[in-house]
Simulated scan of single mutants.
Amino acid sequence: MNAATTVGTADWTMRTGGRLEPAQQRRFVADLARVHVGNIVGRLSVLAHLNPRRNASVPPARLVPPDSPLTRAARDAATRVLPATLLNHSHRTYQFGRALGELEGVDVDAEVLFSAALLHDTGLVMANGRDDFTLTSARVARDVAEQVGLSTAATETLQTAITMHHSPRVTLAAGPVAYLLSAGAGVDVVGLRCWDLPRSTLAQAVSAHPRAGFKRYFAQAWADEAARVPQGRANLLRRYGVFAAAVRLAPFNE
């Protein structure tokens, strides 16, 4: 992965403001189409009881976030900025991403993953101007990283996970943190890969961090972001990803 040219990396987002060129928009829409197909197949597998992971088990202790200067600083920053609805979403994103990593045997820096999850949507609240909201989130993450003396490499991992998280089809090639952050957010927002998680894991995360009207709140926040950055990924997701409908149809009550 070329950090300077790959859509969604921190370098790319800082250079472009998150605005896609026409060729990049076309590739983005093609990736979205593949995600739609995978979502349909996955939901059908649940209805047909064909996915054995639904009956798997992830020990709850493995989903408890680590306690460190980095995670405490990230939690403090997120708590200062985010309303309860988004803060709870951030915690669920970590738990879902971490659970997928446990089931797939993905070795991930849990401190960086938790910090990325807690900070990834701070820009939805704070961003202004014409740049992608994840650029603001990445700046918040940089400030947290500097506060605790995080290494340059780990800071870049943290920022790129945040700026990539709402691109479709983020793979392990982007790194374990980016992969699991995107996957965890996808589960919580639109139900992507919910079929790969045990029912108990889904229920425990929602019980510990209630959704509290998340669907309505997030759909409106996303519409505002799409209008603010018309050439950005959020707007393409809204236009071609039938995003508002996908949020409403996520397999959660609210």
Rank of each mutant, 00 (worst) to 15 (best):
F218N: 09
D67Q: 13
T6Y: 03
R239C: 08
E21W: 10
V112S: 05
A30M: 12
Q147I: 03
A173G: 14
F28D: 00
I40R: 09
G175R: 02
V177Q: 02
G241E: 08
P176L: 07
F28M: 02
V41Y: 09
R211N: 12
A234H: 12
D67V: 15
L181C: 12
L202Q: 06
L100F: 14
P168C: 04
Y240K: 10
Q159S: 09
R62E: 11
H166V: 15
V7R: 02
T134H: 07
W195C: 08
A78N: 06
V112K: 01
V58T: 05
Q204D: 15
F96H: 13
V41A: 15
N235T: 13
G175T: 08
T163H: 01
A84I: 10
V46E: 12
F214T: 07
V41H: 05
R43I: 00
G241T: 10
T163G: 01
V140R: 07
R142Q: 11
I40G: 10
R169Y: 08
M126P: 02
V35D: 13
P60D: 09
Q220I: 07
Y179A: 09
D196Q: 15
R34F: 09
F133R: 08
A138R: 04
A212N: 15
A3W: 08
A226D: 10
G213V: 07
D132W: 05
V112C: 05
I162H: 02
G241A: 07
R54C: 02
Q159L: 05
Q147M: 05
F218Y: 14
Q95I: 12
F114W: 12
P198C: 07
L236M: 08
G232R: 00
Q159P: 04
G191N: 15
N55A: 11
P176A: 14
V229I: 11
A212I: 08
H49G: 04
G42H: 11
D188P: 04
A185H: 15
L158T: 02
L197N: 10
R193H: 15
D11M: 02
R26C: 03
V206F: 09
L63C: 06
D224W: 03
V170S: 06
S200E: 14
F114C: 05
M1F: 08
R193P: 07
W195I: 06
P60Y: 02
R92Y: 08
Q147P: 05
V46G: 05
H120D: 05
T93I: 12
G8E: 02
P210H: 09
A183G: 14
N39I: 01
V7F: 01
C194E: 13
V81S: 12
P230Y: 15
A245P: 00
D196W: 12
M126L: 13
P65K: 01
E104A: 14
A205W: 01
L113S: 08
E104C: 09
L103F: 06
P69V: 05
A61T: 11
H165D: 06
A227Y: 13
P69N: 06
V206N: 10
Q159N: 06
T171E: 11
S115I: 00
T163Q: 01
G241M: 08
Y240C: 06
A153F: 06
M1R: 11
P83Y: 07
D107G: 00
W222C: 03
D121W: 00
T152L: 08
R239F: 04
L237G: 15
H209V: 07
A127Q: 09
